[in-house]
Design a protein around this nucleic acid. Sequence first.
DNA 1: GTAGAATATTTAACGGAGTTAATTACTAAC
DNA 2: GTTAGTAATTAACTCCGTTAAATATTCTAC
Lengths: 204, 204
Amino acid sequence: MTKPGNGDAQKVSDGQLFELLRYSHIFASVIREILEIKLLNEVTPNSLTLSQFHLLKLISLNGKHQVGQVADFLGVSPPAATKNIDKLEGLGLVYRRQSKGDRRATLLSSSAKGRRLVEKYETLKAERLTPVINAFSTDELDQLARWLERFSLALLHAEESGEGLCFRCSAYFEEQCPVTHLHEGCPYQKVRGSHVTTTGEKEA
Amino acid sequence: MTKPGNGDAQKVSDGQLFELLRYSHIFASVIREILEIKLLNEVTPNSLTLSQFHLLKLISLNGKHQVGQVADFLGVSPPAATKNIDKLEGLGLVYRRQSKGDRRATLLSSSAKGRRLVEKYETLKAERLTPVINAFSTDELDQLARWLERFSLALLHAEESGEGLCFRCSAYFEEQCPVTHLHEGCPYQKVRGSHVTTTGEKEA
DNA sequence: GTAGAATATTTAACGGAGTTAATTACTAAC
DNA sequence: GTTAGTAATTAACTCCGTTAAATATTCTAC
């Protein structure tokens, strides 16, 4: 792994490459395990999965999605989405209702309880980031965010077999998704406009 | 979430905070899904889990670990480690042998096949990183790695309830683990010295 | 030196989340 | 109006994790 002469353009040394591999992995693991899974378990006694939470968040942002859409969004099969929705519905976090236009379709909307949960999670997540923010200057934070974006895009574009590629923003979406041209029909796109405010649908 | 007045020190704007949350999540997801899971599935027709691969990697780096140690390392229960080892052993990637000193203990070592797999994965991973490397200057890559480290450390230190905290380097380890004082007895530490070369144990 | 506590691993029983295939209900095409 | 297609669900299964119990070995202490 840290052998000499790995064949590639020798732009970076083996040591640099190792550091990059090491810290990108560690960063990814720490974000996922500490900032996401651990926090989620603290916020929900009923311990939701990350998938289930992302589902809840998407539904909170737009109360007009149907099951198939959110399945695509999560990157899972429709039956898996159904089961996740069952669980969220059982907890009173989301509701199902039949679509008027197409009576096969089920529309999903969040309850006030569901939206409160999303908001609580996001607030706490931002709080936990405070020590991180304090470890950087404002300019550094800006630069870091841009580099993370550049890194992710470079990786994703290289991979573009055109398949089910997605930026995996998990509802941290922006007006203009940078990978839309790779993956048409992203549910995030359908949610555009409601942006980041916790504007749910009607209450039940 | 992007509400005004989130209470915290107003060092960063809500927009900045959102960008940071968005891109740290996206980066973490892309690393995990594209650079790790997807790549692993391409390399192994028998589709190993990330856990199983990390286990194999650890064993490849040091052929003297016992089951309980690698269970700690993976952050799973001993029975889970046993089953993962069963699978790797069934594929001829690792071997079990009884410890001479303590006949309760099982020592684990990798086969040449196992080490080849690890090496192949790491080589391909480095290759996939080429477009990323080309998207940055050498100095930027250095800076990025250091920032990822600083970010991860800040997050981990803030969290330090002293529990099972770990840097989650998954065997991308360095001589001096920055969180050792938080988590004594890390299996990575026991592996120190063999560093990153693919130096396994005896062959069977 | 042997009884009893502690430790290392495995087995057994089970749960949760994912999969594919089949079913049900509805819509759309011709 | 029959037929093909689509949305969602149910059924049957797999995989990876869990805790509790079983087994084998070592350590402690009288």
